[in-house]
Amino acid sequence: MAQPGTTRRPEITIPAHDRTVEQLHDEAFALRQTMLRMASDKGEGYIAQGMDIADLLAVVYFRELNFDPNDPEWADRDRFVLSTGHYSIALYAVLHRIGYISEEKLDEFGLNGADLALSTFDDQPGVEITGGSLGHGLGQAVGMALGYRLDRRASRIICELSDGELQEGSVWEAAMAAASHRLDNLIAVIDCNGIQADGPTVLDMEPIADKWRAFGWDTREIDGNDVAALVAAFDALRASDGRPKAIVLRTTPGKGIPTLESRERAHFVRVKADEWTSLRAELESNRG
């Protein structure tokens, strides 16, 4: 069987801003295929979260970010900071797609001693921070945004967070600092999938968008699994007006695979060996 993500080695250009919504949709689908393969190799994982941010990653990597497929350390690159390190499966899938992670390395995901662990570690090309401990992303993104501004680089920092992660106080320390330092080269994207380790979000998180607005962020709230809405939101947040930007994404855990979407305990998914084939069939038939 042809392996998704390898048969269509990308013709990525810099910048890649001319992708259509349909092309981005295809990229998101390919990421989901790759993730499902990675998870089925292991039999378990944070698949639901990976599926729910596939659309975001497609838009970020194939429309928003300027990067060099041949040089992950390019000093002028835009940076994507994945704060929820346990979403590693999704980040690895997209880094594989753009050529930073080899097929061999991807196959070793989560195995003993593998470079690609269940959490993200920043010694891997394209992984900007070590992200397993929540609440570490936004503060480092603020530092990167300050560093870029100091060097007069026009590049941007896009930092992903999750709704459960907003319970960490360090997120709000960073949110306050970003607005105070007028970092309009920083975009926070908050994956609100409504789940965390103990089940549905254990604290009343709402109104999330208003919290970011109150902290001084130019904030949009959209369906995070709607590629066109993602494109429109990023387009609406390009102003150099001294305000950091935030997009609150309403997402569905397990998006694209109905069995996973309806699963009650979706934070860490274990699937029986014989179920993977049917999940794969569901993904294919829900391509949309």
């Binding site: 503060g139 603020v142 530092g143 560093g147 060097d151 106080g169 320390e173």
Partner: peptide
């Protein structure tokens, strides 16, 4: 500001830009 977690995170982020 009075935010020591953020102090170290921002410092680490700045360090990542050289």
């Amino acid at each position: 500001g009075m935010a020591e977690a953020d102090l170290l995170l921002i410092a680490a982020g700045l360090a990542k830009t050289g």
